[in-house]
């Protein structure tokens, strides 16, 4: 006798799949909209990173695995749309390092400290991008950007962290993650 379909552990959870797809779309939309904004400073790597709000949001509402999935899909789709494979390398390195740090810190600290999770995530993101810049250009002098990127990471990380914090406060969890 075959097990009932809804008891099969390998069965895809359609509701969750759809929700993650919606969140990927939201992240992608924010990312695309942000790319139309003029750069904050004429230095590579300085940006608000607004789509990180979605990652923070998912960390607060679901498993880290789902947040990672959405992040990876967003990065892949964004570089497909932008048509730049060079930026994929930068986004992946920054995004994955940022995610690793944020997931660890979130696990340690929890919802209350989401601003700090975001700050350290932004710092890790910028560090990852400098590492790739050094790797790509083969010039260690790219480290000259590190102080500026650290300061900008703290400022932009605070901003996105506060966005996630207030979003969490004002959006009921049933709306955010109706599973």
């Amino acid at each position: 006798m075959t097990p009932l379909p809804n008891k099969d552990p390998k069965k895809v959870n359609i509701k969750k799949l759809t929700l993650l797809a919606v969140y990927t779309t939201i992240a992608l939309t924010i990312f695309t909209a942000e790319s139309f904004l003029p750069p904050l400073a004429p230095l590579p790597g300085i940006k608000l990173g607004l789509s990180n709000i979605v990652t923070l949001w998912l960390l607060m509402h679901t498993k880290a695995r789902d947040a990672l999935l959405v992040l990876l899909m967003r990065i892949l789709l964004a570089s497909f749309f932008a048509g730049q494979m060079v930026s994929l390398l930068y986004s992946l390195a920054g995004g994955l390092l940022c995610f690793a740090v944020m997931a660890l810190l979130f696990w340690l600290l929890g919802d209350k400290y989401i601003v700090f999770v975001s700050i350290f995530g932004a710092l890790a993101h910028n560090l990852g991008q400098i590492a790739i810049a050094i790797f790509v250009t083969e010039l260690p002098s790219m480290l000259a950007y590190l102080p500026v990127l650290a300061i900008s990471g703290i400022l932009t990380g605070t901003f996105t962290g506060l966005c996630a914090f207030y979003l969490k406060r004002h959006l009921p969890p049933k709306t955010a993650w109706p599973l």
């Binding site: 004429p42 730049q84 250009t137």
Partner: peptide, 20 residues
């Protein structure tokens, strides 16, 4: 956008073209 530089503080980089 990085403009004209005359100091060693920051290199100008065009990362897509790997030019510094």
């Amino acid at each position: 956008k990085m403009g004209m530089i005359s100091s060693a503080a920051y290199p100008i980089s065009c990362l897509p073209h790997k030019l510094v």
